[in-house]
Write a protein that binds this DNA or RNA. Structure first.
Lengths: 142, 142
DNA sequence: TTAATCTTTAGAGTTAACTCTAAGTCAAGT
DNA sequence: ACTTGACTTAGAGTTAACTCTAAAGATTAA
């Protein structure tokens, strides 16, 4: 059993246009075509798409995803490069997580600030709660 | 005391080009100029830049950041909109965090997989550790 | 069998966010 | 005063990742 490009697109949350674009960019060398020229996505192809989505979702550019796929095609001799790539990407994800945590703290502060402002209808929040000024400086100091 | 565009850029980790671009896009209406036309960034301006960086860093497009800045200029009547924006952005960050957590699990699986492959010099990982197949299917099932 | 709905290609167009260039002005050090 | 480096503007160019179009062929349901 296999899926048309539209079905595959729906399954991974992309458009058919995007899948064709990925194909053109060399990201889908594994996808075969029927005798009449239509792309036929297998279950295994869907898995490839999910890995692509995972890497893209963590910010890896399509060019580097293609590099990974080329390594996969090349075979056993590229195992170490692929391992290195995933280790680097894990590091990148950990760093991003830390950055998002800091941003979240700032956003939460702003919410607290504007909740008080909304309650009183004005922006004199630091007059009402002077201790928030210290908190703000701590959050935005770096 | 105030900072030149180059100093300000260094302080927030951007280039002077980027700050001028932001200015052109209307993101820095608060930055004043000296009598001879040079931008002079105050401490308060640096704080604005940090808020912009925070919002940009969590994926808010520059257009919406400008919208926020326009609301700030407009005054007390926009407090509720600003609060709503930060609440939405917090939701977005929480969602992203969850997504990254899932991606990280997949990346960690790949690392385990390629570590075994590297150790043995081939990709017959599931022959050596059949239980990993179940784990993989669980991670990539959705 | 015929209409509606896919899918195909090549290639053009779009969007966001920079990034750079040129030609000139300003500021700081010697 | 002079040189060096940073600053100014307007505007052009770049990059990544789509996004769409047109014209033609394939598939499906009635």
């Amino acid at each position: 059993m296999s899926y048309s490009i539209g079905e595959a697109a729906k399954m991974v949350g992309l458009t058919a246009h995007t899948l064709r674009f990925y194909d053109k960019e060399g990201l889908l060398p594994f996808v075969k075509k029927t005798s009449s020229g239509l792309r036929a996505f297998t279950e295994s192809d869907i898995e490839w798409l999910k890995i692509i989505e995972c890497l893209k979702g963590t910010g890896l550019p399509l060019k580097q995803i293609k590099q990974y796929i080329d390594w996969c095609i090349e075979g056993d001799s590229t195992i170490q490069q692929r391992l290195n790539m995933f280790i680097e990407q894990r590091k990148h994800v950990e760093e991003q997580k830390a950055k998002w945590e800091k941003h979240l703290a700032k956003i939460n502060f702003k919410i607290k600030y504007y909740e008080d402002a909304a309650k009183h209808g004005d922006l004199n929040v630091f007059d009402r709660h002077p201790e928030l000024l210290k908190e703000k400086n701590k959050l935005f100091e770096d």
